[in-house]
Design a protein around this nucleic acid. Sequence first.
DNA 1: CAGCATCCCGGAGGATACTG
DNA 2: CAGTATCCTCCGGGATGCTG
Lengths: 132, 132
Amino acid sequence: MTNRHTNVTAQARFGAEECSLKEVLERVGDKWSILVVAALAREPYRFRALQRAIEGISQRMLTLTLQRLERDGLITRTVLDMRPPRVEYALTPTGQSLTVPLRSLADWAEEHRGALAESRALWDSKRSGTAS
Amino acid sequence: MTNRHTNVTAQARFGAEECSLKEVLERVGDKWSILVVAALAREPYRFRALQRAIEGISQRMLTLTLQRLERDGLITRTVLDMRPPRVEYALTPTGQSLTVPLRSLADWAEEHRGALAESRALWDSKRSGTAS
DNA sequence: CAGCATCCCGGAGGATACTG
DNA sequence: CAGTATCCTCCGGGATGCTG
């Protein structure tokens, strides 16, 4: 376990975490999970409301995503028995804590979306202008 | 544009960003992209070295991922012409900036991986113990 | 409303072989 | 070494229909 490169600067220092990062990404790293957590970060939602809030998610994917998140202890599922039946989903403390790094990601996204689009456009134009 | 719920606390405030978040997630939100960026956050890598560093990535996916990241202006591709040929990949400033939110995500992953596994195990055991 | 079961398709992504 | 091209598989995920 001798570290191979000592030029580890402040912003770097990914390393051993990388594997756990990979691990966790395979669980909550998909688009729908993140969007569900982001939605629930605002307020608890019922099933249908959540589906409407998320825009583009299918009923199937919402069900699956919610089940996984509940399984991972990130959200709670509460059945209010009444007619018609209502089920509320909310973040657990762990789920709450995830919203913090998610926020920085969202901020980054907000800040750099323009740059990405620009770079992409540039790259694409270079591509088509291959000749001459 | 009257906001529907005024109980917006500090940690919440996802909202309009959500769409840009979704957008960006579709670009750099996949496992391989994140792992590549994390790797390059340590130091520049050559193609093969990167493939060895990442563990589990196929040659094809590495190529594709690198191309997309370059297209999005997150990494640079530098061809050193020598024999045998060497190509170095490194983060651009924008790419560097992504490592910041990535770090908080990695930290979160590190901190909560145990909790996730635990919750999952619990949930699973409940499942098998459906009866009684 | 909340949710499961089915069918089905497109594309993500691995394995392999070839090139400069 | 650093890729490109091809083939093939698997499963993410949409559409639809049925239950409680």
